[in-house]
Design a protein around this nucleic acid. Sequence first.
DNA 1: AGAGACTTCCAAAGCGCTTTGGCTATTTTG
DNA 2: CAAAATAGCCAAAGCGCTTTGGAAGTCTCT
Lengths: 340, 340
Amino acid sequence: MNLKQLSHMLSLSQTTVSRALNGYPEVNEETRRRVMDAAKRHGYRPNPSARRLATGKSGMIGYVLPTGAAVDIDPHFVEFLSGLGDYARSHELDLVLSPADADDEETTYRRIVANRQVDAVYLSSPRPADKRLALVNTLGIPFIVHGRSEGFDFDYPYLDIDNEGAFHEAARLLVQLGHKRLALINGNERETFAIHRERGMRRALAASGLTLGERHICSVTMTEENGYRAARRLLEEAEPPTAIVCSSLIMALGVVRAVRDLGLAIPGDLSLIAHDDVFPWLRPENFPVPLSTTRSSIRLAGARVAERLAARISGLEEGARGEVWPVDLVVRGSVAGAPV
Amino acid sequence: MNLKQLSHMLSLSQTTVSRALNGYPEVNEETRRRVMDAAKRHGYRPNPSARRLATGKSGMIGYVLPTGAAVDIDPHFVEFLSGLGDYARSHELDLVLSPADADDEETTYRRIVANRQVDAVYLSSPRPADKRLALVNTLGIPFIVHGRSEGFDFDYPYLDIDNEGAFHEAARLLVQLGHKRLALINGNERETFAIHRERGMRRALAASGLTLGERHICSVTMTEENGYRAARRLLEEAEPPTAIVCSSLIMALGVVRAVRDLGLAIPGDLSLIAHDDVFPWLRPENFPVPLSTTRSSIRLAGARVAERLAARISGLEEGARGEVWPVDLVVRGSVAGAPV
DNA sequence: AGAGACTTCCAAAGCGCTTTGGCTATTTTG
DNA sequence: CAAAATAGCCAAAGCGCTTTGGAAGTCTCT
């Protein structure tokens, strides 16, 4: 059933039927009702390919997926995706993932924009002065950044959490509890979120005249093994930290293992706070010692990004609105006063 | 730059240019070269929307993503996706994720097929007599199942690992080591993979006159917490199992925690083997006691599925070819002889 | 009553590609 | 050497929608 047939059986022109269905004003309400009715009864659905060709709109949102033998997709991605799906589902918005060589995402961005394959894109894990962001901005496709970048002479729409504030609060709590030697096990130092977290932590320490020593900060990709190694290195120093703030639950698993291996105890010898993106399959309250966290649901962020993308596509949202979500500090058993 | 312009500047018809580019035989080789050359020089890329409308092919593969407030996307998915991307990247194949209400995926399948949004789809986590499989089979779109189903009167193309064989081997090893009371912490009992694993384990036990008691088998969604609870329940019985086989690394984390909480030791009091899908961020060799596993890279499976989908789209693969990958049993420190 | 302004509809022209059917040389065949 | 086959090209008709530029009829206003 296509438009031609439908309009023929209604004895109307394709124009009128098309307009009736798409809510244009220049059609009699009575006629519109007739059309809508017939369309529903015959299960008419406009052919998206044809519509795309005519309008240039695809009804899909895009994401360029960096891939490569040495590239692992972050497990956070799937949670974000859940959220995105939550919103997209109810709006018949599809998501197209365009795998790209991690060393050359530009080609792919250009392709999907030139081909008008998607109406909007979102970027994640941005770095300062991220090339993708500048590119997408000049290409003129609607977009939203999940996270933030820095060092541009233009503004852009984003959704981020208050990473700096979160780690500031976490560190401040530890300092208040008497800790003097803190350490940070962070994610990739080139990503903005890691920079912000470090900044927040430094600020909290500085407020009490403390500093974060060079050797008390690790930047690694967020795996259990890297968490273990980092913790091990930190704790085997002459003057080991008495508290660690850690950028992910997965790394925290490694930290806990290292602490055990060294015969130490949490929180007796070491206080630990980690950032929790809220995975359904790994919960901080279920750590051997319930883990204190800075918590923010990445799934909710996914839903919000989808919502805003949809709004931008339909012109409801414009401009470079940045949105920063506060982060909860949830205190559990893994923190205590500094050992004497 | 579109076909019209290109053909005009070559003083050829659109027909000939189109045919030259698409490798049709009825065009002079010399002409073809000229065309190809000009196309490259001017960076001509056929408009996919137009091509779609004309041919009905989209150059994308689809996946219906079950979503819902109570639905969590499996973290395995992201690894599978990495593999899919590895292949798709080099073939300019995009993946479209169509979020669907988990209770009604059918509507979405029908939509993407009717709209010809994708050239092929893959299904994952099938159950016996899975409705989606029957549906997709009758809809006539090329597809591949990742995993297997049962109870159909038709064959279908799939890629699966030898779950039954893997758990058979794991259990057999444990039996050989003298274990008499084994337990299984499995995934969702309604999914085929879980059924196969249970079957494999039972078969191994039966071979030695042993059985898997009703209370020695747990079917739960694969989270750390569920692993913990299951292990806890098993180990607090009057006659606790001396060995556990577990369907995922994530649950194994919980098992390890439960063992610790109960003051027991691995492998002294309990031998443990888990299935490892090979996550980059959580490796069995890094468990407190290195974990024995049945190992199969889900990422490689993703790449293979993409490859086969591409082959089916282009007609290189036909029929209902099933492919079953063997699974490695990797023995590490977490298994030992049964306690006396 | 005639001019202007709406209202409601339509024919037809795209969007940019593929594919059908046919046409003109050139080559092969009996 | 005429007939048949082949090679190489083209014009035009789709694919199924949206949108432009009217046209006809109905109201409103002076």
